[in-house]
Simulated scan of single mutants.
Amino acid sequence: MTPAPVFPVSEPEISAQRAQILRHVYRDGAVLLPGVLRSADQLAAIRDALADAPGTARERFAPRTTLGPGVYSALGWAADRILCPQPEQSYVDTPPALLLIGCLAPPAEGGATLLADNRAALHALPRELVAAAQAEGWTLTRMFRDRIGLSWREAFDAATVDEMAIYCSAHDVGLEILPGSGLRTSQRRAAVRTHPVTGESCWANHLAFLNRWSLRADERKVLVSAYGVDGLPFDTFLGADEPLEPRTVATIDEVYADLSRPVRWQRGDVLVIDPALTSTGREPYSGPRELAVAFGA
């Protein structure tokens, strides 16, 4: 996969060019609109010109700041760590159809957004893994405790346990209320998705990204010692409950590392991405880096 093709257009022309822009997105997985963004609010207008409806940041695993109605900051991820490519919100019942990322201020060094083709990943991964994932899907479990990672209130935008329960019931998320103030959630999703427009099959899941073996060894050791393997903040499984081997997680990571292509930011650039076709990550960086993010349904 090459970095996203460039589609020169002015912001007022985006609505008129919608069909052509989306053709590029469906073909290439992403397209870059250079220099069209001046503010976070404007990203919402670009989203509305391209998407059928606005989307939201749901079931977050890392913090985001709200910059405006339906517009968010990039994931709060340590600047000195790589963010491995992952398909946006693959763990929700209805993932977003479009992901828009706009650059308000590029970093001094590094910080490129990494794009990786989910169609190519499907063909590059071991056949037996793909067959099992396609047949059985994958399961994500999350454990919410005070002072460990995001709270369930932040992750699910819920003010009360009752609100949390209503959301989980509506979106096929299992919910277990634990003694004290803890909650456990679980959800089983498709691991391979058929794109609704192109009909192509895509490896679209967080099977490796949110697995226990993706934690740094020292961090995993501390968490397992404190809470046990079943008490980790997040973990993933093939099917309902089959644990992944470390080698399986490493293989998925290696495939995505090989497929990753960097997009270097210039102020005002906007990436329009199809999350089913393309996973996104981020290189480490230094200096301020301001990106705005919006989702389309």
Rank of each mutant, 00 (worst) to 15 (best):
I82E: 05
E176N: 13
N211H: 15
A124L: 13
G182Q: 01
A116D: 03
S186E: 03
G180K: 06
A159P: 00
R261A: 05
E128W: 14
G137H: 06
A16W: 07
E163G: 10
G239I: 09
H123N: 09
A78S: 15
R38A: 13
R289A: 01
A78G: 14
A294R: 08
M143D: 07
N118F: 02
R147G: 03
V9A: 08
F7M: 03
I14H: 12
A120F: 12
P5Q: 05
A165S: 04
F7C: 00
D52K: 10
L83M: 11
E283H: 08
T194N: 11
E128D: 12
A257F: 12
Q134C: 12
R38N: 03
L100M: 01
R145K: 09
I166H: 14
P233L: 02
L232H: 07
Q187N: 11
P246A: 12
G180H: 02
F237G: 03
A45P: 02
L178K: 04
S73A: 14
T139S: 10
W213M: 10
R184P: 13
P275A: 00
T56H: 14
P106K: 05
H123S: 08
R188C: 14
L291A: 13
I101E: 07
L32I: 06
P246R: 01
Q42E: 06
V36Y: 08
F237R: 03
R220W: 07
R60K: 11
N211T: 11
R153L: 02
N211A: 15
L291C: 13
L125K: 04
E109F: 13
S186Q: 10
A292S: 10
I21M: 14
G111F: 12
A158I: 04
V92S: 06
S73E: 06
M1R: 07
G296R: 03
D41L: 00
T236K: 09
I252D: 07
I82Y: 12
Q187V: 14
F234T: 11
D172E: 13
P196A: 07
G149Y: 05
R220T: 06
Y285L: 02
E176S: 15
D41R: 03
P243S: 04
A165L: 08
E242Q: 15
A40I: 06
C168D: 00
L75V: 14
H206C: 01
L175P: 09
A208E: 06
A16V: 03
I82C: 14
S151I: 01
G228A: 01
V92F: 13
D241F: 14
S73V: 10
M1P: 03
A121L: 00
G55C: 06
G287F: 09
V229G: 09
L223H: 14
V222D: 10
G111A: 12
I82N: 07
A57S: 14
V161W: 05
P233V: 02
A155M: 03
D146H: 05
T141M: 12
A191E: 00
V293M: 09
L67K: 03
G180T: 01
A62F: 08
G55D: 01
A121K: 01
